[in-house]
Every structure is written in structure tokens, then in C-alpha cells.
């Protein structure tokens, strides 16, 4: 009950501090592991190079993929600020759902981008325990 209250109160007494600072920004990278063979790290759902005006206008009404991506950004930030199994499960399930069915295990890591002087630096802040891809895809079906 107390937990529900702590989730509810910020919605009716919001802080409205949008973009107060531009904090280090998370990216999710994943790799597939088959036995001893470790795949290379790949960015989850990379952005398109560009979007046309028509696509941008369509996204005003239909934007489920991007909104899920923003939710994953929230989960990544929460995982660093207040680690929880919920955030790990949400990232695992949603990354697995976007992948073709296959054997082996899925592992993800959180890379945070920030600016130091004129340089953009990448820092790996979290690496998950590998989980069977089939079981994740079964759970999200």
C-alpha cells in the first residue's frame, strides 16, 4: 500500500522539472550467447537515419515502438538509481520480443553517454546475467 502511495503521489503533486539538466543518457546493448560463443554487442532498436514528414505526422497518432523505447530508457535509469528485478525483467522481455526466435541466451548491458568537455564518452554501468532467449520469448508471447 505504501509503495502504491509513493507511485501515486508524484502524479498528483508533480515536480514538472522537464530537462532540468541533460543527464548521462542510457542505451541498451545486447548480445546472444550460444554455449561458449559470445556474440558481439549490438544496440537495441537503433534509430533510423532519417524520418520523412509523412512518417513524423503518422507518429502523432501511432507511435507504440518509440513509446516503448522511451519506457526502456526509464527502466534503464531506474535500474541504476534503484536496482530492481522489475526493471531487469522488463528490459529482458522487451529486448527478447524484438528478436527472432532462437536458441541460446540473451544478455544486455547499459551504456551511458555523456559529454566531458567537447568529447562524448561512453560508460558501461550495468551488465545483466544471461537468460535463456526461448524462455523470455515464451514469457512475452
Amino acid at each position: 500500500m505504501l509503495r502504491l502511495l509513493t507511485l501515486f503521489l508524484p502524479t498528483v503533486i508533480p515536480s514538472w522539472r522537464f530537462f532540468k539538466t541533460v543527464a548521462p543518457s542510457p542505451r541498451i546493448e545486447y548480445r546472444l550467447i550460444a554455449g561458449e560463443s559470445l556474440g558481439g554487442w549490438q544496440e537495441d532498436r537503433p534509430r533510423p537515419a532519417s524520418l520523412g514528414v509523412g512518417q513524423i505526422l503518422c507518429r502523432m497518432l501511432w507511435n507504440p515502438d518509440w513509446n516503448e523505447q522511451l519506457y526502456l530508457v526509464s527502466c534503464s535509469e531506474r535500474l541504476i538509481e534503484a536496482p530492481s528485478q522489475h526493471s531487469i525483467d522488463e528490459i529482458n522481455l522487451r529486448v527478447a520480443r524484438a528478436l527472432p526466435a532462437g536458441p541460446g541466451a540473451l544478455q544486455f548491458r547499459l551504456v551511458f553517454l555523456s559529454r566531458q568537455g567537447a568529447q562524448i564518452v561512453k560508460l558501461v554501468e550495468y551488465e545483466s546475467t544471461p537468460v535463456s532467449l526461448a524462455s523470455l520469448q515464451g514469457a512475452s508471447a
Partner: peptide
């Protein structure tokens, strides 16, 4: 208010950072 008291926003650096490396821009372009 939270932007106007932040030197990064005053210098215009914050909005550059939003486009430079934040997770928000919808395309790389």
C-alpha cells in the same frame, strides 16, 4: 525556471546536448 537558473541552458549548451547524445531525437539525422 529550472532551465533559466541552469548555466548550461543559459549558454545554449543544454539543448545542444539534447540533440548531441540524449535518447530523445527520433532519428540520427
Amino acid at each position: 525556471w529550472v532551465k533559466v537558473v541552469n548555466p548550461e541552458w543559459q549558454r545554449g549548451e543544454a539543448l545542444r546536448d539534447v540533440f548531441r547524445f540524449s535518447a530523445y531525437p527520433v532519428s540520427e539525422g
